[in-house]
Amino acid sequence: MNRQKLNKFLKKYNSIPRKKLSQNFMINDSYAQKIVGLVPSAGIDSIVEIGPGFGSLTEHLVELNKNLTLVEKDPQICKFLMDRYQLQAKIINADFTKLNSDIFKSLKKYLIIGNVPYNVSKRIIRFMIDHHREINQAIITLQQEVAHRLTALPGTKDYGGLTVLLQNIADVKKKFDIPPAVFYPQPKVNSSVVVIDFFTKPRFVDPQKLIPLITICFKHRRKTLRNNLKCSFENSKLKSIEKYLDLRAEQLSLKDFKILAEKLF
C-alpha cells in the first residue's frame, strides 16, 4: 500500500478518512510487511484482523494461508474488502469492541492483529483481557503512549490499572516504533507495535478478584491505599495489609497485588 493506491481506493469507494472512526491508513509497505512478519510460522491456525481498512496488512496476511477474519466498522470500506478478499477471508461489518465473543469461539486459540483505531485502543485491550482464554496472541499497533502503559514497570508514571490487569495474564513486549509519516492522514503522535502473548492461566491473581481491586486501588492515583481502600473494606481486613497502606497503587508489583487479593477477598 502507498499513497497513490490509497487515493485510488478512496475515490473508487467514495470514501474519505473519517476522524470520528480514528482512521489513519498505513501507506508504507515496508512497515506492513514488518508487522505481518511478527506472526508466528507455527501454532496459529486463525487470524482476526481489527480495522483492516484498505488492506495494508491484509494483502500480506492472505499469503500466510491461515483462516482469516476481517472486522471492519466502516461500511464503505467493507465494500472494498468484499470485492477484494471475499474468497480469502470472512468479512464482518461491525465494531470489534461490541461483538459477541461467541463469534470467535469456533476459532479456539487465535491471533489478533491490527493497526487499531486509536480512539478505541483501550477498549480493545479490555476486550482482550476479558476474553484472554480464547486468544493465543495479539500483534497490535497503538499510540506510543498506550504502548508505554502496557509495558510499564511498578513505580513509573505509566504504570496503572491497565498495566496490572494485562501483565497478570500476558507477556507484553514493545517491538518497534512507527513515525506519523507512515500513515495518511498523519496522526499527531508516534505509534508502537506491541506483541501480547496470553498465558493459559493468570500469572498471580484470578482476574475476577483483580479487576475490582485494581478499580479501587487506582481510583485516586495520588492517594495512598489507606485512603482508597478504607471505604470498601473493614478495619480488620485493612490491618492484615498494614505494611502496604501508606503506599500508592503505582508502587505495588503484581506479587503485591496477589497478597492484597488474598487478604481482602
Score class of each variant (00 low, 15 high):
Y110D: 11
D83H: 11
K108I: 01
N28D: 15
L225N: 06
N67F: 00
K34S: 09
N190P: 00
K12L: 14
F265A: 03
K90Y: 01
F80V: 12
N100W: 04
V146R: 01
Q86A: 14
N65L: 04
G53F: 10
L210C: 10
S192W: 11
R222D: 13
I211Y: 02
P154I: 10
K19V: 06
E262R: 07
L87W: 00
A152E: 08
F9Y: 10
T163N: 03
V189E: 11
C78Y: 07
H220I: 12
N228R: 04
K157Y: 11
P202N: 07
K237I: 02
K188R: 15
D45W: 00
R226N: 14
I113S: 05
K209F: 07
R84S: 07
A94M: 04
K73V: 13
L81Q: 11
N190V: 00
D158L: 05
S56R: 00
K255Y: 04
D171G: 02
I259L: 09
G160L: 02
S253W: 02
D177M: 14
P154H: 05
D45R: 03
N67K: 09
E63R: 08
K79I: 15
E49N: 13
E63M: 06
N2S: 07
S101A: 15
Q33T: 03
T163R: 00
T156A: 12
E63S: 09
V48C: 14
L260P: 12
I113N: 04
L81I: 12
I196N: 01
K258F: 09
V164P: 04
K73T: 09
